[in-house]
């Protein structure tokens, strides 16, 4: 059985935020909602200082606490591991947002889909894209499952100019993601939470 996952190579990520922009362009998330983000921080002291980047998105955990706590079954996990939300079943209680230790659940505030990015009417783009979302519900990254089901990569992976994001089947030992995890030292975020994330990171070089 396929288990979709992602490996993010922190040795090659250049912090360009293309993933965040591509996610916005593909999913048309409302203002202030980013499914894909890049955290930046500095390490060291001048002159031995450097900028470091940590791209984040939903971890599509093997033990997703957000699914467990959902009272209506709106949050669900597909057999291939993708965690998603059925908008027509979600009542917007935000239990999932509280349960997610990674802050990757986003509540669509009532009225926010009418405001858009600019003053005045929504643009044609916003009208088309916002049709997918429902005010008063929770939305999240679904690994671009519509694209994945068509045999495409998630938008953030497709667009990454450094090819720092690699998407594939963790259950297939021959896949690129499995190979990378075998050949490199990797980690997941907040392992102590016991969620078993399916987004892995290859450690950045310390040189």
């Amino acid at each position: 059985m396929t288990r979709w996952g992602m490996v993010i190579d922190l040795q090659t990520c250049v912090g360009c935020h293309s993933c965040s922009a591509a996610c916005k362009a593909t999913n048309g998330t409302p203002p202030d909602i980013f499914f894909s983000r890049v955290h930046e921080f500095e390490s060291g002291v001048y002159p031995k200082a450097r900028r470091e980047f940590l791209p984040v998105l939903c971890n599509h955990c093997q033990n997703p606490p957000c699914v467990e706590v959902c009272p209506t079954g709106a949050s669900y996990q597909r057999e291939d591991g993708i965690v998603a939300v059925k908008a027509d079943v979600c009542i917007g209680c935000r239990s999932c947002a509280l349960a997610c230790p990674y802050d990757h659940r986003h509540y669509v505030e009532p009225g926010s889909l009418k405001k858009g990015y600019f003053d005045g009417d929504l643009t044609l783009y916003e009208l088309v894209k916002y049709d997918r979302w429902t005010e008063g519900t929770v939305i999240k990254c679904d690994f671009c499952m519509d694209r994945v089901d068509e045999g495409l990569k998630p938008a953030c992976v497709e667009t990454c100019p450094a090819e720092a994001r690699i998407f594939g089947d963790l259950a297939d030992p021959k896949s690129d993601v499995s190979k990378l995890l075998r050949e490199n030292e990797s980690f997941t975020l907040l392992p102590e939470a016991g969620t078993k994330p399916c987004v892995y990171y290859i450690k950045p070089s310390t040189e």
Binding site: V14, C16, H17, S20, A21, P31, F34, R37, Y117
Partner: peptide, 20 residues
């Protein structure tokens, strides 16, 4: 890296990235 001169100030996604 995500902006090209001042033109980018009219792209809402890039402006939003800049704000964060």
């Amino acid at each position: 890296t995500f902006k090209t001169a001042t033109f980018s100030n009219f792209n809402p996604w890039l402006v939003e990235l800049g704000r964060n």
